[in-house]
Structures are given as C-alpha cells and as structure tokens.
C-alpha cells in the first residue's frame, strides 16, 4: 500500500477541531480538560507525520550501523516536551477544577461564571 500524501495532516486537523468542539460543547469541567488533551494530541499526530520517513529506522543506533536511514529525531524530542507540557497543564487544570468544586459546589462551566460583564 502506498502512503496517502496528505492523509495524516488531515487527521491532525480533524483531531484539533474535535478537541475544540469538545471544549465548546462541554458541560463538565473535567470533560473540558480531557477535550484539551485531545487538542494537544493533534500536535502529536502532526509532528510525528512530518518527521516520518518511508523505510526509515527508529533513531536509536544501538543495533544499527551509523549510516542507516532513520526518521527525524528532532520532532521526537519536541514531542517529548509536548508530552510533559500536556501532563503538567492537565495536573494544574484538574487541581483548579477540584478546588473550584470545593469552593463553588459545581462542576459545570455554566454555573462557574462568577466573572461577568
């Protein structure tokens, strides 16, 4: 099977829009946080797709001669940072959700609107 030329990029765009849709339609703050991780995962798909090389090996030369064709190690390093960013943002947001629930007694973004006008 051939590699369809633009397919993974369209998947990344689709996932981005799915995540945003989740945030917009959300009725629960935890749901909103999880939707945000979906937005984040679109960047994984995009980064992975642009660094991939047909027939390339993983960039680990443990059992590989040094001239081998490998996929791009840079995007993988960027993705590692991306993974960490995702976790930390989620941890922080969930802490806010928990605390907001304890203080405001609600998990719905519709009822957590103390700042209006």
């Amino acid at each position: 099977m051939k590699f369809p030329a633009d397919y993974p990029y369209f998947v990344a765009a689709w996932i981005l829009l799915c995540g945003l849709y989740g945030i917009v339609r959300s009725k629960h703050l935890v749901h909103m946080v999880i939707s945000l991780t979906v937005v984040q995962s679109s960047t994984y798909v995009l980064l992975l797709a642009i660094g991939f090389r047909r027939g390339g090996y993983a960039p680990v030369f443990a059992g590989l001669h040094t001239g081998a064709r490998v996929v791009d190690p840079i995007v993988q390093a960027l993705m590692l940072t991306d993974v960490v960013v995702e976790t930390t943002v989620v941890a922080l947001l969930l802490a806010m959700v928990v605390k907001a629930y304890e203080k405001g007694g609600t998990t719905s973004p519709d009822d957590l609107r103390f700042l209006r006008g």
Binding site: A5, Y7, Y9, A12, A13, L16, I50, F52, R53, I74
Partner: peptide, 25 residues
C-alpha cells in the same frame, strides 16, 4: 474557516513519509 486554513496549508507540506529536512539527519 480554521479547518480550511489548516488543510490548505497542509496540502503544501511534503507528502507523508518523505521527510527531507536536514536538521534531523
């Protein structure tokens, strides 16, 4: 609109699996 911008931009990317950047190599 956003999906259109994204897809229009992605159409100009190198085809999938044809990585060509020099940095990683």
């Amino acid at each position: 609109g956003m999906g259109f911008v994204y897809c229009a931009g992605a159409r100009n990317l190198p085809p999938w699996g044809q990585y060509r950047g020099p940095y990683g190599d």
